[in-house]
């Protein structure tokens, strides 16, 4: 433990953190999984999805944006927070059009995997069936806004990693949509399948063409173990 490191408490466990590190990134390194959808370790934090909301020193805040500070006490895994997470996931399912049985991302989808992890068998809210646009104009990538969860991963990846700023949001509230930097379609942009923004979508919204259904059922990412298992399997040294 270097001089710069300090300890925080997460669900009663001691977790080592570095100055400037967010709570979620300290927890990831320590093998403590906090559910998240918009957070991606290679991208700047956004705090959009609220799934990682925890009690931090008694107040609710998102673990992906809150910097760790010495002695912080974090509660993440309790029934109240997990129930709120289930409601957030419920809302995402009914506000979009998610047809898991036919979706190319099924089995590798983080939305689906989080619902599995939290034991959701059916949504508790009424389906909205919104009309959403599909853009299949690009030769290598399609956008299916039916499944978009407005996490902004593609926006941040395109802007901060690819340096292209192809994606953005338009509208607000229920009318909010993923937009592209073009008058008409994705094929008019400089977007490429090798872009970071093409690889970070947690759901089946931005999908690389001709890659679907390649992995057999049973061998997909979340078929055998819940999302977060890889983080929880991290070797954790004694923080003391």
């Amino acid at each position: 433990m270097s001089d710069q490191d300090f300890l925080i408490t997460v669900d009663g466990m001691k977790v080592r953190a570095k100055r400037g590190q967010t709570i979620i990134s300290a927890c990831d390194a320590a093998g403590v999984y906090i559910p998240r959808l918009c957070h991606h370790p290679d991208l700047k934090p956004a705090g959009h999805c609220r799934l990682c909301s925890c009690y931090i020193d008694g107040r609710r805040a998102s673990a992906c944006t809150m910097p760790a500070a010495p002695g912080m006490v974090v509660v993440s895994n309790n029934e109240e927070l997990n129930n709120d997470r289930r409601v957030v996931l419920d809302m995402l399912f009914v506000e979009g059009n998610h047809f898991c049985p036919t979706c190319e991302k099924s089995g590798d989808c983080e939305l689906q995997a989080l619902a599995y992890r939290l034991g959701i068998t059916a949504p508790s809210l009424t389906y909205q069936w919104p009309k959403r646009e599909i853009d299949a104009s690009h030769p290598d990538v399609f956008i299916d806004r039916n499944t978009c969860v407005l996490c902004s991963r593609c926006i941040r990846a395109s802007r901060d990693v690819d340096g292209k700023s192809i994606f953005g949001f338009s509208g607000r509230g229920l009318g909010m949509r993923l937009n592209i930097d073009s008058e008409t379609k994705l094929s008019d942009t400089s977007f490429a399948a090798i872009d970071k923004a093409a690889k970070v979508c947690p759901v089946g919204c931005i999908v690389i063409k001709r890659t679907g259904y390649r992995t057999p059922i049973g061998r997909r990412h979340f078929d055998k173990a819940p999302i977060g298992t890889d983080i929880e399997a991290c070797e954790v040294g004694d923080p003391e």
């Binding site: 998610h98 047809f99 049985p101 036919t102 059916a122 389906y127 919104p130 009309k131 959403r132």
Partner: peptide, 10 residues
């Protein structure tokens, strides 16, 4: 969820 038949809902 309505499933595949519900694809007509939109």
């Amino acid at each position: 969820t309505g499933g595949v038949p519900a694809m007509r809902n939109m």
